[in-house]
Design a protein around this nucleic acid. Sequence first.
DNA 1: ATGAAAGCGCTAACAC
DNA 2: GTGTTAGCGCTTTCAT
Lengths: 356, 356
Amino acid sequence: MILLFLSSNTPFITNMRHNKDITIYDIARELNISAATVSRGLKNNPVISEETRIRIQELAALKGYRPNTVARNLRRQKTNAIGMIVPRLDSYFIATVLAGIETVISPAGFHLIITQSFESVQKEITNTIAMFNSRVDALIVSLAADTTDISHFEPFWSKGIPVFFFDRVCDKDYCQKFVIDNYEAAYALTSHMISQGCRKIIHIAGNTTKNVYYDRMNGYKNALTDHGIKVKPSYILVNNLSLQAGIVAAEKILALKPLPDGVFVANDLCAACCMQMFKEKGLRIPEDIAVAGFNNDPVSRLVEPRLTTVNYPGELMGKLVATCLIDKLNGKSPADFSPLQIIKSELLIRGSTSRI
Amino acid sequence: MILLFLSSNTPFITNMRHNKDITIYDIARELNISAATVSRGLKNNPVISEETRIRIQELAALKGYRPNTVARNLRRQKTNAIGMIVPRLDSYFIATVLAGIETVISPAGFHLIITQSFESVQKEITNTIAMFNSRVDALIVSLAADTTDISHFEPFWSKGIPVFFFDRVCDKDYCQKFVIDNYEAAYALTSHMISQGCRKIIHIAGNTTKNVYYDRMNGYKNALTDHGIKVKPSYILVNNLSLQAGIVAAEKILALKPLPDGVFVANDLCAACCMQMFKEKGLRIPEDIAVAGFNNDPVSRLVEPRLTTVNYPGELMGKLVATCLIDKLNGKSPADFSPLQIIKSELLIRGSTSRI
DNA sequence: ATGAAAGCGCTAACAC
DNA sequence: GTGTTAGCGCTTTCAT
């Protein structure tokens, strides 16, 4: 008795079983009907009589039938899988986008296949090919840092498989992309810093071949120019925005004479890191030097003073991307669907720049 | 001429094409050989002559052949997909585990299908079924907050499909799980706080039906007891460890008389949040009240003072999980493979608890 | 309302 | 070294 009980509960024993999956044919045979009828009955095809439908579904449940998605996909030439390629997963922003996408996609019957490019085009290309071969129904991409050529997506386009870019998008007009107005946000942020009396503002940018960092840098530059402040190329530092890079950058800044009175960093983590370094050197934030970040990462609310930043609505963006994608896959894409979708961001002014 | 150029580059035009995939049969026909030979040649089966192999591969490349993974999966009864179910994606810890898993799995020819349970068993069950139906070759799971019954994994076990748990694992002995020694880490951390003169230590725990929070709480309790300090149930707060929850908890703590002299929070984000609240009320950290977290989230290094915490090596854990899994799938699982794998964690003593 | 049959693209056992 | 053949499990005309 106990043995029986165990045998239905411990994988050690049940592992041995490897009992074969039951198919629509098994059900058909047992019910003395055809596989076609079973197939129809299982998916509530109204053409099947109530009675047979019930018999089919009951037996299926009883025997623990599970539809074979692989066979179904092969037959229908459709996988219900959406591929996703992102630079890294360990970023709060990406995680929120993912969360948004998943909430929309999953109820719609799709699932996500996720890979990371680890900021390398090479890996991105490999992943793209793998996705293509696994026949994903669509692709959602945020580009790697060193991606300039995007011809690896060509196979998707030439087969009419949707490729949606978000955040780090390609520069081609015909690409479907979802972004915030990085230029505008950076312009507003920089203007705010100027309004707080900052005149010597450093900008720490990420890889400026990417639209996000390029646009933020330009927003910074133009805000300066428009306020009659000359842009000093030496005031623009480019790195990968990691904590380590933040330490190096902060040291560079601390060595400058005269000391700058503001630093606008293209992400929050690196900004927080710089701010910490400044504080450790005895500088007061924001009086001696104001610091601002970008993204509204939780860290921005936890450091002292709280970090001025730009709210980047990742989850919202994810939901929008996913909604548009599902619509497109279901063929009910509105005619006026613009290839460039801009999501509203928002300047969050906090202690780290409030000097007045 | 220009039109031709465009037509090979813009999706608007190529979208129209939807050119059919070419198959091994197309290649076979064109080369006047059999599909079987093409199949063999494509995968460098040594039984095929060098010459035909080259001819096959060249034509395949020329015609832009792509293997149909779906058909292959159906035929081989194997998907090379590994399912993953996690509570949420927007946690630094989870992201690092994922990164670790992905680096191992991808070169081994597998890909990840990721879903979130959003801390709900119901969603976890739905996801589990979906994974089962899509025939993943294995499952990697960190349980939702309210999962107690784990019978939804039974179908996997009864079919001999590996299910590996990490971090938030099930309590059954026969489950394969990967954890750190949460008890030991919390014990060490609490002991450290006591050694720094803390006597009235609050513990903020997550859902204690989960091993991770239960074990941390017990480590805390036993450390107190072993040092002759009585455990006060009112000193143990349970919440979901979010920032919002941190604010509420901090307020509760601030209202206590006498004021506690230490707070050990089960994650860093919530700990940082509490610390911030304390500081705003004019308390000095760690002199008036010491604060410690758990996980070694980047935020722990950016707040002031830096947060004492436990390094939870997520990436390492991910790599270990993935390596074991791949080995198992390839049938070269060592005989002595223990169902319980404990990864070493590490106490990181920083400013927020250094009172001596 | 139900069934027969073809085929999605690939692989592998078996033959030669 | 290469070909033949028989499916993997399902869907979907086309019949009846």
